[in-house]
Simulated assay, not measured.
Amino acid sequence: MESKPPFPPFNLETAQQKVQMAEDAWNTRDPEKVVLAYTIDSQWRNRSEFLSGREEIKAFLYRKWAKELDYRLRKELWAFTDNRIAVRFEYEWHDESNQWYRSYGNEMWEFAENGLMQNRFASINDVLIKESERKFLWERG
């Protein structure tokens, strides 16, 4: 059986660890790796899109990172209880025309006993920014 520690119920340390693990995974921009944090039948809402299961999530992530170029994310623990975690996040990316954006949002996560995320609900807003206004500069590798 698949598992991804730490497992619920969460405490402050394990909730922060889960958030950091998610940030690190998403910053790889590797759908094959990221999708392994979710249950086979995970349910998502991302903006106005509703997804069901790893295969739909994986396809979504491939589309996302084909559009959101040089994506860089920061997540922050907002609250937690038992098997749920709430985070706030912001990320920067640019489109094909090199227009930069900063996207802000909140996510609510619910975990199965095995530590995989079974539900993810994300609300996200985008703000146009100039490249000179970027906060998340990093080495391209």
Rank of each mutant, 00 (worst) to 15 (best):
L61S: 01
E131L: 05
E23N: 11
E32F: 00
E107H: 06
R140F: 02
F136P: 00
E13V: 08
E76N: 13
S123F: 14
M1N: 11
R84I: 04
K130Q: 14
G115Q: 14
L51V: 02
W109G: 06
L77E: 09
A66T: 10
K64V: 01
V19N: 11
K75A: 02
D41V: 09
Y104I: 03
D24G: 07
L137V: 14
F50M: 10
Q43L: 13
R72T: 08
S103P: 01
K33W: 05
W65I: 00
A22Y: 09
L77G: 00
A122E: 14
E23T: 08
F10S: 09
M21Q: 15
K75M: 11
M108L: 08
N114Q: 10
Y38H: 12
F10C: 05
Y91C: 13
I129W: 07
E68P: 05
L77T: 03
W44C: 07
Q118W: 12
N125W: 08
W93A: 10
E139T: 12
A122Y: 03
N125K: 12
L51H: 04
N83I: 02
L128T: 15
R54V: 02
E96P: 00
G53F: 04
P9S: 11
W100N: 02
T28Y: 01
A22N: 03
N125I: 06
A15K: 03
N106H: 15
E76C: 06
M1R: 04
W100I: 07
H94A: 06
W100G: 09
P6N: 07
M117R: 10
Y38F: 14
L61R: 02
P31L: 09
E96K: 11
S52C: 10
D70C: 03
P8G: 02
D24M: 10
Y104F: 14
V19A: 07
R63K: 07
L128S: 10
Y62L: 12
V35Q: 08
A66C: 00
V87C: 06
Q20M: 13
N98S: 08
Q99P: 04
Q43M: 11
A15Q: 13
D24S: 13
D41N: 15
P5L: 02
Y62R: 15
V87N: 10
N46P: 00
V34S: 07
E76L: 10
K130W: 12
K4T: 12
A25S: 15
E92Q: 04
D41S: 08
E133I: 07
K135N: 11
E131W: 00
Q43I: 14
E139Q: 09
R134F: 07
Y91N: 07
L36W: 03
S42Y: 12
N106T: 13
L61C: 04
S42A: 15
N11L: 06
R47P: 01
L61N: 05
Q99T: 14
H94Q: 06
V35H: 05
Q99E: 12
W78T: 12
D24K: 11
A59M: 05
M117D: 05
D126R: 13
D70Q: 15
E139F: 05
W44V: 01
R134N: 04
M108D: 10
Q20H: 11
W138R: 14
W44I: 01
P31R: 09
N46V: 09
N46C: 08
E107G: 15
W109Y: 15
Y71A: 12
F7V: 00
Y104R: 08
K33S: 14
E139D: 11
